[in-house]
Nucleic acid binder design. Structure first.
Length: 197
DNA sequence: CATGGGATTGACT
DNA sequence: GTCAATCCCATGC
């Protein structure tokens, strides 16, 4: 699938497809192994409250990145989905580290490879993604997305409930590469989904 | 203007 | 298992 086609998917389909794509920023990067979908129609999504200064980015065109501060400490990286005017995004929750691993390990305090990008706050720290990139585009932006290598098999998906939220927690909108050692915790996978692609 | 609450992480009992 | 760090923002008075 091309980037253009990816960005035309509804947010849940986009979250599933993104597992296996690679993400890079300033030379660092890795393969996406875990995502979650958020949509304005459900209260766990920041866009549920409508357009505010905080959520404005979520209503931008698909392919814009939404970066916000969580718990006063961590930066969360999302890829905006759905047409302009619809608030939706895919949270990138974990990467299998690939590029500039040594630099990422220094940023993370020499963490193990498995734990280097195994969480949404960890991967933004490892890749050096700042809050100021909120609203930037993946098209020609400092953060870039790259499709899986054509012809190579893709890991089957496992599906679970989104974690760390109190509202709409029942939706099965968390996706990960089955068996990957690089996904975040907890790992209460509800079931195995169809293979990606 | 005061307040409460996080799409988390790491350290500690 | 528990809990603090730390700050922006949405909400309500």
């Amino acid at each position: 699938m091309t980037l253009e086609a990816l960005l035309h998917q509804p947010v849940v389909a986009m979250a599933r497809e993104l597992v296996g794509w690679s993400l890079r920023h300033a030379g660092c990067g890795g393969v996406i192994v875990e995502t979650e979908a958020y949509h304005e129609s459900e209260p766990a999504c920041h866009a549920f409250a409508g357009r505010t200064r905080r959520t404005e980015t979520l209503f931008c065109a698909p392919g814009v990145v939404y970066v916000y501060r969580s718990y006063g400490i961590h930066a969360m990286l999302n890829i905006v989905a759905e047409p302009s005017g619809v608030g939706a995004a895919v949270l990138i929750r974990a990467l299998a580290p690939l590029d500039e691993v040594d630099l990422m390990r220094r940023r993370r305090g020499l963490d193990t490879l498995e734990q280097l990008c195994s969480g949404p706050g960890k991967l933004t720290q490892a890749l050096g993604i700042p809050l100021t990139l909120d609203g930037a585009s993946l098209i020609g932006g400092p953060i870039t997305l790259h499709p899986p290598v054509a012809g190579e098999p893709r890991a089957p998906l496992v599906v679970g409930h989104r974690v760390g939220i109190t509202k709409a927690a029942e939706l099965p909108w968390r996706f990960a590469a089955e068996g990957s050692a690089f996904v975040s915790r907890p790992r209460p996978w509800a079931w195995t989904g169809a293979a990606v692609g």
